[in-house]
Design a protein around this nucleic acid. Structure first.
Lengths: 173, 173
DNA sequence: TAACACGGTTCGGTGAATGAACTAACATGG
DNA sequence: CCATGTTAGTTCATTCACCGAACCGTGTTA
């Protein structure tokens, strides 16, 4: 997305995240990295992506702190790309998106299943409330403005409405 | 991303999902819809997106079953775009991505906080195991191939390795 | 010494994103 | 009755990103 054409002014963490992992191919690179792919050639063969694009995506992810480029042999010099702890935390978005795809777009049953090694159970991404211990549905969620919103000066109806607490799905304006 | 330039052959639900919601602006439209935005002009004012792009994105989302276009007044004829149940389920991917952005990219504290109305607690997206009731870390996850993978005929090293159970982050190949 | 493997970069062609201008249906105010 | 405004788009020329093919540099193997 880069350069002047970004999501600036959105005052939104989602927009910031999409700046980093919202470009074409990027999240599939992260998915492969979560599977354990590390080398340029393996990403390229598995994704069937133009080399120039892969090279640029890897550079972006390294710069964003999602991947680390690491020399693993000297002769010939070879680097591998491994996920940082920040990259590990993309697991949850990836799982949530993949599960949505399985549920609503897959035609012939799930492609890949994710299981808890310890007990063998199948994973589910959830929206969880640590305070009461419950799983929270969208209709029970309220958005509240946080300190990072202070710099927002947008004056459209939606921005104005979202500067006060707001129940999800309640019509705006 | 449409036309011939899609993620076909990826045999992956994530790739299918990105076909629908992976284009520039699309997930921000969904985010606004989750907040309760419904009208063309409100999306446009809040996102500051070219009208032509918004028009195309809304059409794609309607076609994918994420949004429903609904006539809400006859004179003058006005339509609104509301989320379907399929669209509601994008809440979890959106929350997971937004939280990742807050944690790793936000500079001045969180922009928006999501609370459970019933108890006031702050939400967290989690990777949950219904069998044992635990929250599962990436290192405890194993990928297993599912029935939807049968049609996959790719022969690269990564595809071959992922046709058997595989612990996440274990190096491939 | 030739061929090959790896990890890129360079380059021309194509399609998508962008902002500005235009359209069309209807409402409103004087 | 006419001018202006609102909403929801479409059209158009320009700019930009993606694409595949070719090329490059380093080091290794036959």
């Amino acid at each position: 997305m880069g350069l002047g054409k970004n999501y600036d002014g959105q005052s939104c963490a989602l927009a910031s995240a999409l700046e980093v992992i919202g470009e074409r191919w990027t999240l599939l690179v992260v998915r492969d990295a979560l599977y354990g792919v590390r080398r340029f050639g393996d990403f390229q063969a598995h994704l069937d992506i133009p080399k120039a694009v892969l090279s640029q995506r890897l550079a972006t992810l390294v710069e964003a702190g999602v991947l680390e480029r690491r020399r693993y042999q000297e002769t010939p010099p070879r680097d591998e790309y491994v996920l940082t702890p920040v990259g590990h935390e993309l697991w949850l978005p990836v799982l949530a998106l993949a599960q949505w795809g399985e549920r609503h777009l897959a035609t012939k049953g799930p492609h890949r299943l994710f299981h808890h090694v310890a007990c063998g159970g199948r994973l589910e991404p959830t929206s969880y409330c640590p305070t009461c211990g419950g799983i929270v549905k969208l209709e029970e969620v309220e958005m509240r403005p946080g300190p990072g919103l202070a710099a927002d000066t947008r004056q459209d109806q939606v921005s104005l409405a979202l500067r006060t607490p707001h129940r999800m799905l309640d019509p705006i304006p």
